[in-house]
Design a protein around this nucleic acid. Sequence first.
DNA 1: TCCGAATTTGGACGACTGTACAAATGCTAG
DNA 2: CTAGCATTTGTACAGTCGTCCAAATTCGGA
Lengths: 210, 210
Amino acid sequence: MREAILDAAEELFSANGFRAVSMREIAQASGANLGSISYHFGSKDGLLRAIYERHSGPMNRRRGELLSEAQRIRDPDDRLAAIVRAFILPSFSESEGTEGGGARFARLRAVVMAERHEEAQKIIAETFNPINHAFIDALQACLPHLPRADIVWRTHFLLGAVNYTLINPWRVTRLSNGDAKGENAEEALTQIVQAAVAAFRAPACADAPR
Amino acid sequence: MREAILDAAEELFSANGFRAVSMREIAQASGANLGSISYHFGSKDGLLRAIYERHSGPMNRRRGELLSEAQRIRDPDDRLAAIVRAFILPSFSESEGTEGGGARFARLRAVVMAERHEEAQKIIAETFNPINHAFIDALQACLPHLPRADIVWRTHFLLGAVNYTLINPWRVTRLSNGDAKGENAEEALTQIVQAAVAAFRAPACADAPR
DNA sequence: TCCGAATTTGGACGACTGTACAAATGCTAG
DNA sequence: CTAGCATTTGTACAGTCGTCCAAATTCGGA
């Protein structure tokens, strides 16, 4: 039952946000009793924490593997693209870790992050800061001329683009009159990698003419 | 009093999200009575709509001016940078329209957008689609070789980067150990323009090698 | 089979939510 | 001054919320 609750909660949170979903909705969707959720997770925050704990391990392991795989590439240009891809791939892949949906968990993180929920902010920082720094280091190695601050800014933008796409997949579809398909993970991935690599290759901000 | 309520609601919504803020908090923060809010705006959704109506006019007029100003630039490269700047400048400028805070309203939009609130989604689409298309057209004129779908994708990423920065200004500060300052609007603006211009100049995705 | 631990159940709790409305007040035009 | 409209006030309502708990149930090992 514990797993069913986690599944349902994850699905509902990722679709509607943390605050908007009630414990009773989760209970109904999972077929569990309201009290059972309290029994297993103590509180609503505890439930959220459990969701994070279920995913963060496998996800970060996966990202670590992809990163070190990418770092083995000799050519710096190819390497840069591979690192960017490794950085965001798990957020778009359907199956990951425990069960079907690294994308679902990524969408959950994006939505919860936007809600500025204190507990979540803390969990996210704890869980993702180390691996984020590893990626920044890898990018710095590809772009030795670039100040670290600029790299941080651009990874930040990259994450923002990913999150925005995950939160509103249909937006790009509607804005292009169906020409671009935002719900297509493959297309989103190639588009974002293409754009991000170019952004990383841009000259440093300090060097830019005003 | 009406104005005070709008001010307080805007501040609270932009800081904590729509659902997380109660009518009573708004009443207390604005010094108004709970019933007065219902009297002036009918409902909580009505209040949100009033906030949008207060800002969207001046903001879109401003963006339109900045856009046509940018479009007068001859050199396509300079023009591209100017258009990108015009696209996002109102989201970072402190004073705009009625009173102090285009940034506040932009943050509100970002937060509310992430909450997937139906009413808000509708208002945003109505209000911002036309001007968004105008910007896409202007970008297309700078980049005639690029498929329109790619341009839509990249403006989408641009918006995601802007929103993410507005929602979590401190993130980039913490991630760079204070080297980059996310709360500094000036710095954020130059960094994002630099990155976005490079992204727009990237070759089309269809032409990219796999 | 039976005991004890783990889990599920249904209901209750107080706190909080958005909304509605009559009564009181403020204010302006005649 | 006063009639009439605009606004504010206080309160009540019907729900929903997260949390808690005693009783009932399930289940695995001795």
